[in-house]
């Protein structure tokens, strides 16, 4: 018998530090598989954010750097400009990318920087203990929206993929989920297309990955996946919002 599924080479042997059932690990594996498949591990530089995924520097077996909170796209820009033959990706959560780093992501996308962004949207701050994120759903209870997110005072959840896809410098944007095998397969395809866009120098690419945070949602991993499908997907529809063909 032949091994048909195992650990990709672009990951180190280190066990993930994430909570049981957290989707970060699946997203890591998919990115690593894509690096393996394109044979680009040795020319890739990854940028870890601040948040739970700060530890990605230990998990990806490629050159890595940790950015300050929200600044990963700017660090990526400096890298890609000074080392244009490398493949540069950032891995960011919703607090990092859509709150403190919203300016960075918008302008990096608008300049059409040839980088790939893996954006984990789990509608909450994980590392700091479950505070409201820009992507927290209306009515969702978090540590800092204990009565549920009230759009009158807290605004509405931001649809990052839709918003960024309006920018001309963007080559590829899609939103995927990881809550069941069919979604995981589609997510893998999206991540492939995102890196392919970069390899072909088409411009900025981003994959928004809807993920669970069982610990801070206060649900079991199975319940969390169900909650994601019932609550997040209706608000954050899956699919491609921009593909390279649209780049003029």
């Amino acid at each position: 018998m032949k091994k048909v599924f195992g650990r990709p080479k672009s990951l180190t042997k280190d066990p993930f530090t994430y909570c049981p059932g957290c989707h970060h690990g699946i997203a890591h594996r998919l990115v690593a598989e894509v690096l393996d498949e394109f044979g680009i591990r040795e020319k890739t530089i990854g940028i870890s954010p601040v948040g739970c995924a700060v530890f990605t520097y230990a998990f990806f077996d490629c050159d890595m750097i940790c950015a300050a909170h929200g600044r990963a796209p700017s660090v990526a820009t400096g890298m890609k400009r000074s080392k244009p033959d490398s493949i540069v990706f950032t891995y960011q959560g919703d607090g990092d990318l859509a709150a403190i780093g919203m300016g960075e992501i918008v302008h990096t996308a608008n300049r059409g920087e040839s980088i790939t962004v893996i954006f984990i949207n789990n509608a909450i701050y994980g590392m700091t203990g479950g505070q409201m994120a820009p992507t927290t759903l209306v009515g969702q209870v978090t540590q800092t929206s204990p009565y549920g997110r009230d759009p009158k005072t807290m605004g509405y959840p931001i649809k990052v993929a839709e918003m960024l896809s309006t920018l001309k410098g963007v080559a590829y944007i899609s939103r995927v989920a990881l809550s069941k095998p069919a979604y995981v397969l589609k997510a893998k395809k999206a991540i492939r297309k995102a890196f392919q866009s970069q390899i072909e120098g088409k411009g900025f690419s981003l994959v928004e990955i809807l993920s669970t945070c069982p610990t801070n949602w206060g649900l079991s991993p199975i319940e969390a996946s169900k909650w994601l499908e019932e609550n997040m997907i209706p608000y954050y529809p899956l699919g491609e919002f921009k593909t390279p063909e649209e780049v003029s």
């Binding site: 032949k2 091994k3 048909v4 195992g6 993930f16 059932g21 699946i26 095998p181 995981v184």
Partner: peptide, 19 residues
């Protein structure tokens, strides 16, 4: 059947599949 669905959703890559 070796469909690998279990491995695909495993966040810790704790499952290997052989066929």
């Amino acid at each position: 059947t070796g469909c690998a669905f279990c491995a695909m959703v495993c966040p810790d890559i704790a499952i290997e599949v052989f066929k």
